[in-house]
Nucleic acid binder design. Structure first.
Length: 569
RNA sequence: GCGCCCGUAGCUCAGCUGGAUAGAGUGUCUGCCUCCGGAGCAGAAGGUCACAGGUUCGAAUCCUGUCGGGCGCACCA
């Protein structure tokens, strides 16, 4: 697709003297007008002529310049139509050649992207609120992988901070009353809630919590540290089960505690740059020169212990020192926008030019119809419950619609998880979400299973073609002329690499989701109106080539999103 | 109070970073299984792009203000 755009740009540039790279080529609103369009408005000022006149003149000059592309002026627009055989051969040829790699490129080779995502807190249940960071982060990593970047996915586990002092204190007091080994997450949650309830009227308990965190941070290898270690191990084992099911993995699992040895050097590094000051007994960096009313960044509390921001600063320095990244993406909820702005301001005040490479890939907050998520109030949906229900429902539909399916359990897992994972990437990241069971568990319309179904049907057609001994046509313009009425679909297929590129650049998986939905919709409509097998053999072979290409692209899109592309369902 | 984000069909969302007549899904209504898989296809209906100004050849898109919603605002993470 890009080759046609490049050729058009070059031709226009040759006749207008404009820079080819700056020419905006777009799609006409009405596909019957053409495949690509160039609006002539931007030329009007330079040439001191009316856009329609420019279009007409330019159209005249371009005619004949572009082999396989016809030109037509329509008002102020110049519309281009690519010969269908040429288009089909180019698009399907590229797909066939690149296969699972189609959509990717090597534009990122030599560049490194660090991604911080998922990052759940130890001792808390993994619920639907944690799903977005995990899924979005994993997809953004795959998008960059596809573009040839070296990627480093880091799970920045929340395993440090004063809440662990509280937890340790609670375990010391009531640890015998719960089944810590048997049901760790639930037990820890019970203890955490109890701590907060009782701490309100028990200053001694509060102090015990503080003391425990001080001991933890002191590095002393005592009982507190041993307890904290055990907590971490128990929680990680639970998280791993979920990651495995979702097919998510990390290059590094580094809790906040990992950066513990770097805390003091980090504080020194910032202090050495001369931007720190004492304020009310705490060590802070003022940031209001960048933003009116921006609160200062606290590096050290009055009691000498560090904060979240200190640890994140230590982490970002460590990552820079280790990876010298070109991008460092934090896939973290929008409730932490201020935190990341502060983080970047500190780097900016230190005069570090790589500050702009650090990006907060924020996403909207999830709530339930009855209000905010609250583990303590029981207002949560546990992720495993959601996944189980989705899979169960997929299983029920399979039993009804396709009882002879070979491996129904596996496919139910693929489709059920597909629905959940796809749904979480459907809208723009920034949008807040109200969790709705019916919406997530829907398998019709703009859903993962709809796209998977399209893929499975294309696979089915290809299987049947093999049975009949039909082969796809040679990918040459002459043999693909039968696809003359399938231009829109070919254009959509050809657009995929652009989709992948902008989804990665904007760290926006929904661009891929929307694309894959559009392609599935067009494909469904197409094969409802175009019989692939059983007609004229030449036509069948050409259409088979299109089916093969579409199946590859849909499969690639789904895989980028972390959704399985079943051959049958 | 201050800051950031969001506001498009009844509902959930797109709208290609300023271009041609604002599009999907869902819900409602209507058709389509002697035909490659009906988790599907085709059609009808549904709009003051929150509101008011501004910028220019042109604004859902950019700027300002108002209203509504979300999130955040020094010793939590």
């Amino acid at each position: 697709m890009q080759v046609f755009i490049d050729r058009i740009r070059a031709a226009i540039a040759a006749h207008s003297g404009l820079d080819a790279a700056e020419l905006k080529i777009e799609s006409p609103r009405d596909p019957s007008l053409g495949d690509l369009a160039f609006p002539c408005f931007p030329l009007a000022k330079a040439l001191r002529k009316a856009p329609p006149a420019i279009a007409a003149e330019l159209g005249e000059k371009l005619t004949g310049d572009l082999e396989g592309i016809s030109v037509e002026a329509a008002g102020p627009y110049l519309n281009f139509r690519i010969d269908r055989g040429t288009l089909a051969a180019q698009v399907l040829g590229t797909i066939q050649e690149e296969g699972e790699g189609f959509g990717g490129s090597d534009e990122g080779s030599g560049k490194t992207v660090v991604l911080d995502f998922s990052s759940p807190n130890i001792a808390k249940p993994f619920h639907v609120g944690h799903l977005r960071s995990t899924i979005l982060g994993a997809t953004i990593q795959r998008l960059h992988d596809a573009l040839g970047y070296r990627t480093v996915g880091i799970n920045h586990i929340g395993d440090w901070g004063s809440q662990f002092g509280k937890l340790v204190a609670a375990i010391q007091r009531w640890g015998d009353e719960v089944d810590l080994e048997g049901d760790p997450i639930r037990s820890l949650l019970t203890l955490y809630i109890r701590f907060h309830d009782e701490a309100e009227n028990d200053p001694e308990l509060v102090e015990a919590g503080r003391a425990a965190f001080r001991e933890l941070e002191s590095g002393e290898e005592g009982e507190v540290r041993a307890t904290w270690r055990r907590l971490t191990e128990l929680s990680l084992a639970e998280f791993d089960r979920i990651y495995q099911r979702l097919g998510v993995s990390f290059d590094h699992v580094r809790g906040e505690a990992f950066y513990e040895p770097y805390l003091e050097p980090t504080i020194e590094r910032i202090r050495a740059s001369g931007i720190t000051e004492e304020s009310e007994g705490a060590l802070v960096v003022r940031l209001d020169e960048y933003e009116k009313g921006a609160p200062p960044c606290l590096l050290r509390k009055t009691d000498g212990t560090t904060l979240y921001a200190t640890r994140d600063l230590a982490a970002v320095f460590h990552r820079w020192d280790e990876f010298a990244f070109d991008r460092c993406l934090y896939v973290v909820g929008s409730d932490q926008r201020l935190h990341f702005r502060q983080l970047k301001y500190v780097l900016r005040r230190m005069g570090l030019d790589w500050e702009s490479r650090v990006e907060h890939v924020d996403f909207g907050m999830l709530s339930l119809p009855e209000g905010k998520l609250s583990t303590r109030k029981g207002q949560v949906v546990f992720l495993e419950d959601l996944l189980d229900r989705a899979v169960e429902q997929a299983g029920a539909i399979i039993a009804e619609k396709n009882p002879d399916l070979a491996d129904p359990e596996r496919v139910a897992e693929e489709v059920g998880l597909g629905a959940v994972v796809f749904h979480d990437q459907k809208r723009e990241r920034v949008k807040d979400v109200v969790f709705d069971w019916d919406e997530v568990l829907s398998f019709e319309g703009e859903t993962g299973p709809y796209v998977q179904y399209t893929h499975a049907r294309l696979a089915s057609i290809l299987r049947k073609a093999v049975e009949k001994g039909l082969e796809a046509a040679e990918l040459a313009p002459e043999s693909l002329a039968g696809l003359a009425d399938s231009g829109e679909l070919l254009l959509t297929l050809g657009r995929f690499p652009t989709v992948v590129r902008s989804a990665a650049a904007e760290a926006e998986p929904s661009i891929v989701t929307r694309y894959v939905l559009e392609l599935a919709r067009e494909m469904n409509s197409w094969y409802a109106n175009h019989r692939v097998l059983g007609g004229d053999p030449e036509e069948s072979r050409a259409r088979l080539a299109l089916v093969r290409g579409a199946k590859i692209v849909i499969g690639n899109g789904l895989r980028l999103l972390g959704v399985a592309a079943p051959e049958e369902m």
